[in-house]
Design a protein around this nucleic acid. Structure first.
Lengths: 209, 209
DNA sequence: AAAACATTGTTAATTATTTCACGAATTATG
DNA sequence: CATAATTCGTGAAATAATTAACAATGTTTT
């Protein structure tokens, strides 16, 4: 089996979301060129990415929107549902709980955790909030795959330790601080400051072009 | 002037946040190797990145935490403050408004916009909420640099058009749909589904190693 | 049915990024 | 003081990612 690069996978997920939108509009065919115009990637890039998933398109015609979506989804998600455990039900955590479109898109929030006594026991958007002390148990029972850290940065490492201890091997970290984890645990950092700064900086450096 | 790659800049912002934490802990010196252990990047990578900002370190010693932080900040932010205009004060928008640490970190939310009459006029965390109809005016008056899209996906394109019309050249798009903008406008897409999926997928592909 | 056109899949070329490896600089130690 | 131990900065080597180019294939038009 060929290995598929992380970048290809990330773009693949992006293609899927675009194809979903096209399907809703009733578009049954799409060319790499059209997809390029929508997504901003180059057409060559798109064809190359897709080719790593097999021969899906027809020369002269393009890709069947539905078929391409299905094939990408098979590869990227393998028809599985990603089970997510959320730590921290503050404003960011709440926003994640309310994020639309998870449910029908192969992502399922299976549990939330918060230290605050007044939050424990509540159910937000169908997701129960537990005491973090019960995390290891609950995570095992709910078969979570990924942990999300959305707690104040003072507690990030502590939560990361709990996640690792629970046996999860993937973490999305929204707290603006690095966490230390064993090498076999994958971490994705999402720091709004990093996004804003790097965008701003790139805007300026590209001004001169 | 040498050009600095986007990747270097992104990591640069990441270094800054790490250095901030170290400074708070009172650590005055840091080696590329230590920084590598904390951030997960390689020491060679870190040295190479830093070298594009000048000769900052001392062989045999390492880098002065404060000096390195300052130099990175000078380059990445040029001592400027990024002014951000937020569109959509739903749960995600509210989370962004309440995101801690913006203020003292060179990011300033200068205005928020929401269609809902009951939100217009409110002040959240010191940020005023305006009617989107006034966006062009308000953005000019508040000298915004970047627009953030946190509205339901049905309205994303509409908001993107307003942002472009207002003269902004950078957009952070949290809505799970692609937006069409002129080529000279930079867009950063942040789609939670993409993050979750690609992390999960990578976890599986790397399992076999 | 031939010519013109559109579009994929893929190999080769190009460009970008990361890692390696080591000289130079600095401190610590015997 | 000389030797060992650190650690930076950097050019060269190795990888990775993107783009370009085009043969192959299918459609449309006349």
């Amino acid at each position: 089996m060929k290995k598929i690069s992380q970048k290809t996978i990330e773009r693949g997920v992006f293609y899927i979301r675009t194809l979903e939108a096209l399907l809703k509009d009733g578009q049954t065919l799409i060319s790499s060129n059209q997809l390029a115009n929508i997504t901003g990637f180059s057409d060559a890039q798109i064809r190359k990415d897709i080719s790593s998933f097999g021969k899906v398109g027809r020369p002269g015609i393009g890709y069947s929107t539905a078929e391409l979506r299905n094939i990408l989804q098979d590869f990227v998600l393998k028809n599985e549902v990603v089970h997510v455990a959320l730590f921290g039900v503050g404003s960011l955590g709440a926003a994640i709980l309310k994020y639309p479109g998870f449910h029908k898109d192969g992502i399922k929030l299976v549990a939330a955790f918060d230290k605050m006594k007044n939050k424990v026991g509540a159910t937000i958007n169908g997701v129960k909030v537990y005491d973090p002390k019960r995390a290891v148990d609950v995570i095992k029972k709910t078969h979570a795959d990924i942990g999300v850290i959305a707690v104040p940065k003072e507690h990030s490492q502590e939560v990361a330790d709990i996640i690792v201890l629970s046996g999860l091997r993937g973490i999305v970290n929204f707290s603006p601080i690095s966490i230390a984890v064993p090498k076999n645990v994958m971490v994705k950092n999402i720091d709004l400051r990093v996004e804003f700064f790097s965008l701003f900086c790139n805007m300026q450096y590209n001004c001169g072009i």
